[in-house]
Write a protein that binds this DNA or RNA. Structure first.
Lengths: 196, 196
DNA sequence: ACCTGAACACCGTTCAAGT
DNA sequence: ACCTGAACACCGTTCAAGT
């Protein structure tokens, strides 16, 4: 006779799922560990077996977000052609798409960027996202479509501008046409900056 | 015979000052209204006369930050010469300087950017900062040093890149020389993007 | 190994009451 | 007008104890 392996089944995954739901629906800061426990039907102390602190849960959430973003960006580039301009276009649109659909999660992801006590796995996941961008730039340099210079420094305006255009898009007040034009202008701006 | 006008003198200003200190020394999230009250020597309920919620205090803090940033940027531009390139250089360096000296405050300032329930005065203060940048761009367009196009859209990569280079600088691991070179490269990148 | 129950030391906010 | 004292409804975290 089979019994459930333990009280909940997979409390860890359940907590992460519930956390992402409330993050999406009610924003960060509305996230309470006790409330997640209630929703999962366990006692207030139960989550501590899987996440030693609330911050650890947030970090796990952020890490999953970075990994998903890396996957979706890398996947989109695989389906793109070879020219740097096209690839940059694809990367930008993929990023903005992800950001629009995961605004609160993205905020959580980047809010941990500065803190020095972020766990190494999280740092690594953040790093992997950046690598997609720096690889693209390096590739562009090899093809002679991007000027020479430190890849890390060249990546800054790209990463920054992606975040900026996302912020502007999320703040709303745009028709689809305006958003599309803004995106196109922004991509053109970056291309100019990268021109040899 | 003169008595103190009321128990504290100027609790509102005292709370703001104490809040900025702990923001700087221990980061946001360590900011507790009750603790501020303790430090100010008043009861836990006292702050509510001046800030109806904790968020109201944070908003006041952010607003003061935006106003100071506007003042320092506008002031720097007044002492700059006329060419767009030079003015952009001054603006960028002033912004990065402010950011380095007020990292936690800046994070607080921009964390409120998305929320829809931000008070109108805060929105206005944020707007005034942006106006310094858009005015510079418009001026550049008049001088023929910046290509035509929506000023708002042209401002996006500038604002975004300023934030990006600041993040990178704050994340550390740079010598002064590297930081200087990175800043110079970033400014050059933006100038290329703006070229007619 | 995983979870409960109960406790600890905090929060933000409210509200009658004091000065 | 400004503040106190006390209360309310929450937190995150810890820890012995249960299964």
């Amino acid at each position: 006779m089979k019994t459930r392996p333990y009280h909940h089944g997979d409390l860890r995954a359940a907590l992460l799922g519930l956390a992402e739901d409330t993050l999406r629906d009610r924003g960060p800061g509305e996230l309470s560990l006790r409330e997640l426990a209630r929703e999962a039907g366990v006692s207030p102390a139960a989550p501590s077996r899987h996440f030693r602190t609330k911050q650890a849960l947030l970090d796990a959430l952020a890490m999953a977000g970075f990994d998903r973003l890396t996957t979706v960006m890398a996947g989109a580039l695989e389906r793109a052609d070879d020219s740097f301009g096209q690839r940059l276009d694809v990367l930008t649109r993929t990023y903005v798409g992800f950001a629009m659909n995961n605004a609160a999660l993205l905020e959580l992801m980047f809010s941990r960027k500065h803190e020095p006590d972020a766990p190494p796995e999280l740092i690594e996941s953040m790093h992997r996202v950046m690598t997609v961008a720096t690889d693209l730039i390096e590739d562009g340099q090899r093809r002679g479509e991007v000027r020479e210079g430190s890849v890390m420094l060249l990546a800054v305006p790209l990463a920054a501008t992606l975040q900026g255009i996302t912020d502007l898009a999320l703040s709303g007040g745009f028709t689809d046409d305006q958003a599309e034009q803004g995106l196109a202008e922004t991509i053109a701006f970056i291309l100019r900056g990268y021109a040899p």
